[in-house]
């Protein structure tokens, strides 16, 4: 997933779209907005970021899960949680540097799924397809022809907390 911070306005449509699409219960969220202001009046800059699970290449949450409930889906490389295996021990939560996970009232852990159910149907994730500024892009980074690959080649970008060493897969164009 590639998000253009030059376009993002922090409107949180992505947050609501995720909540309705995935029927996330009241009081919980899989994605959220970070608003970072730097500088002093009147020399300021402002960055909005729509954040969620980074579906890390090296996911400590998966490594820390004692039951295999947290796993990387082979076909898509998406990090998922299998409620049938999850004990709610919260080890994966402690392991995620992005605080992207949470425990549902039902007791198992949940988080962003990259809307795998939509992606399998050839659709964009709900947040991506709702975003009014069209600042979010979703695609296959292994495919050099994809939109996301092209953007990462042609624009400057960053990931959040790279030093945490998880090799995150949500990229922010700057």
């Amino acid at each position: 997933m590639v998000i253009d911070t030059k376009l993002c306005i922090g409107c949180a449509d992505c947050v609501v779209a995720c909540k309705t699409e995935n029927e996330v219960p009241e009081g919980y969220c899989r994605d959220w907005i970070a608003e970072a202001t730097s500088g002093t009046f009147p020399d300021l800059s402002l960055e909005y970021r729509s954040e969620r699970c980074n579906h890390c290449d090296s996911p400590p949450c998966v490594h820390a899960c004692p039951t295999g409930a947290s796993f990387v889906d082979e076909e898509s490389n998406v990090t998922l949680v299998d409620p049938d295996l999850c004990t709610g021990c919260k080890s994966c939560i402690a392991a995620c540097p992005y605080d992207a996970r949470f425990v549902l009232p039902e007791g198992y852990v949940s988080k962003c799924t990259f809307c795998i159910h939509r992606v399998r149907e050839g659709l964009d994730p709900a947040c991506v397809s709702a975003c009014p500024t069209r600042c979010m892009h979703f695609g296959d980074l292994n495919d050099p022809q994809s939109d996301v690959s092209r953007l990462l080649r042609t624009r400057s970008w960053k990931v959040i907390a790279p030093a945490a060493g998880t090799e995150p897969n949500v990229y922010y164009l700057t």
């Binding site: 449509d13 609501v16 309705t20 709900a126 397809s129 709702a130 009014p132 069209r134």
Partner: peptide, 23 residues
Amino acid sequence: PWKIIGNEDDLHSRGRMCTRGTA
């Protein structure tokens, strides 16, 4: 009730509601 999605053919939404419309 599930969700509300913009109509692609509409010049007002161009397939995308805003935060409030989505809600």
